[in-house]
Structure formats: C-alpha cells, structure tokens
C-alpha cells in the first residue's frame, strides 16, 4: 500500500477547519475546571466542615474512573433518571464532563504547588493585617502558580487530546472529522497522520506560550 502524500496535504486544511472546536472546548473546559479547582483547593486548605470530605470524594471519583464512563453517565445515564436533563446538548455535556473531570486533576496540581509556598509567606500576610483570602489572592496563589505552570501546561495538552473522547456524545471535534475523512476515502494512514500533525502543532504552540509565561513569572526570582 502506498502513502498518498497529496491526500495527506489536502486533508490538512480540511481538518484545520475544525481545530476551533477542539481548542474551544479545551480552553473553556480548562477555565471552568480551573475555577472549580480553586474552590476545591480552598476547601482543602480550610478543611471546611462537610465540604472537605465531599471534595475528597469528588476528586477520588473523577480521578479514579475513566473520563469516557463519566461522559456516558452524564449524557446518557442522568437523563434516564432525571428526564429534564435531556435538554443538555452534547456541547454542554462535553464542557461539563471535561471540566468536572479536569478540575479533580487541577486541584491536586494546585494543592501540591500551594504546599510548596513557604509558610512564612502566609504569616507575613496575616501579620500585616491581610485576610486569608487576600493573602491567597495577592501572595500565595501567584507564587504557587509559578511552580504550577509546567504541570498546568501538561494538563492542558492532555485535555486537548482527551477532548476527542467527546465524540461519543456526538461532538464532532477534529479527531472525529479525521475518522470520518478516513472512512470516506479509505486512506486511514493519511488522515490520521494529518490529524496527528495538527495536534502536534497545537502542543508546540502551547509549549511555546507556556515557556513565555514561565519566563515572565520567573522574573522576581532571577
């Protein structure tokens, strides 16, 4: 069997048209999961009553079960129990599913980085009269983020690739289109390689942005 290089080239622009779906879903999920993970990590640090064991359970469940299963339960399972939930579109389900799942991972990343911030930084904040929340926002969090950026970058790249699972819900992102392109042309190798090149390109760009961000956050420590 021969590799049809022309077809490979032609499928690149065809697939690029759908990058926005993959990227959009990933970016929005990343942001929502980041917000959720901040709440989780605050609960963790304050050992908030009732919420703390719940948050541990949440993290344990979403890290301990496959994303595919979570998406199935969310999109197909829950509407069978609560029929009102059937109005949920596949896009919404994808965003919710990816966000809930990713938040569990992010909160562990953030927890680790927050633990890495020296305890005297919190002391200093409190001693000048700042509240714990102010301290988190102005001092502790920015310092933790610097440590967390490489892991966050990793996580985001993972999220981009995992977002392809949402095709089971009917969200046709870039890998889904590659599959369908391949099915139509029977040129599987060509289509999959094209999509691989696009994914790779995305991660190269993200890696570059990540290093720029790292450099900027590194300035106070040079």
């Amino acid at each position: 069997m021969k590799f049809d290089f022309m077809y490979f080239l032609e499928s690149l622009p065809q697939l690029l048209k759908y990058v926005y779906i993959t990227l959009g879903v990933s970016v929005v999920s990343m942001i929502i999961s980041f917000v959720i993970s901040i709440v989780l990590v605050l609960i963790d640090r304050n050992r908030t009553k009732v919420l703390y064991p719940l948050s541990r359970l949440y993290i344990s469940f979403f890290r301990g079960t496959p994303l595919l299963v979570q998406l199935f339960v969310l999109y197909f399972g829950l509407p069978q129990i609560f029929p009102e939930m059937a109005v949920m579109t596949s896009l919404q389900a994808a965003l919710i599913g990816l966000s809930l799942n990713n938040a569990a991972y992010l909160s562990e990343i953030l927890r680790g980085s927050l633990n890495g911030v020296e305890s005297n930084q919190m002391d200093a904040c409190l001693s000048v009269g700042m509240t714990k929340l102010q301290a988190m926002r102005k001092v502790i969090f920015p310092q933790a983020i610097r440590v967390a950026v490489p892991s966050l970058g990793n996580n985001f790249i993972g999220l981009i690739k995992e977002s392809s699972l949402t095709f089971v819900l009917g969200l046709a992102e870039i890998l889904a289109h590659a599959k369908m392109l391949a099915a139509e042309s029977y040129l599987y190798m060509e289509s999959y390689l094209a999509v691989a090149v696009i994914y790779w390109g995305l991660t190269v760009i993200i890696g570059w942005l990540q290093r720029r961000l790292e450099y900027r956050l590194e300035v106070p420590y040079l």
Binding site: E118, N120, Q121, D123, A124, C125, L126, S127, V128, G129, T131, K138, V139, P142, Q143, R146, P220, Y221
Partner: peptide, 20 residues
C-alpha cells in the same frame, strides 16, 4: 482582626513577599 492591626511583625527570616 482588631488586635492584629495593633501590631506589626519583623521576622527572623525577613518573610518578605517574594512575588512583590
């Protein structure tokens, strides 16, 4: 809060805000 605002601390290890 009120009590804390009455005093300020100088620490052995300086404890400056490293990101500021």
């Amino acid at each position: 809060e009120l009590l804390r605002h009455k005093t300020a601390m100088v620490f052995q290890n300086y404890s400056l805000f490293k990101n500021k």
